[in-house]
Amino acid sequence: MKEFFHRRIERNAIGFVLAIVGVASIGGLVEIAPLFTIHETVEAAPDMRLYTPLELAGRNLYIREGCYACHSQMIRTLRDEVERYGPYSLAAESQYDHPMLWGSKRTGPDLARLGAKYSDAWHVAHLINPRDVVPESVMPRYGWLQRNPLRIDDLGEHLAAQRAVGVPYTDAMIENATADARGQANPEAAESSGVTERYGEATNVRVFDGNPSLVTEMDALVAYLQVLGQLTGAAHQETAGRQE
């Protein structure tokens, strides 16, 4: 009798556990599951290019330094945002962003369309001391980016991991990742021709940090910032289409 009672209580508790998990999971499933079939409805962006190894490394630095905590990369479909920052963001634009960096707070301005807005030199000066360029800024200084050499020997592994989660990097891109990073940061180097070959003519191949002899973290971060909003023209076309 005692044994039976004990078992009943135990079952009671387990049932309770299942009820909580069941009740709680359904909301999430309903909201999230349809998003995995959503590619059927997402605007196509056939001209979309991938991050180069240097830009991907820069993106990882953007994450490392916590830039996403103060800068969003998601322009909402509101008139003032479109006028301030540019065409509103499309789902397709972040389809290869693992993870996404939409952000949740604008202590500083949105960066979704930052690319090609300022010169490399401006970015370098701004990152070394933001108040040299914008006196009222409260952004931290990032002087170490200019001094730290970028770790490029493992970029192939990074690209391979990205491919494993769904970004269509080719074998050639993975094999040449390290060389491409060096080449993109120095147009004089022999390796630079391969970058545009693999990632397209529009790729920025420049000495981003002003120092051709070393690939620094500054090179990578500026390369990334300069490509924000530049990977596809879909958003500009979409906005133009709406206005007609």
Partner: peptide
């Protein structure tokens, strides 16, 4: 370092 299995809009919704 790791890369999220999800990307873009799925990643945003999951997050």
């Amino acid at each position: 370092k790791s890369y999220s299995l999800f990307s873009g809009v799925q990643d945003a919704m999951t997050q």
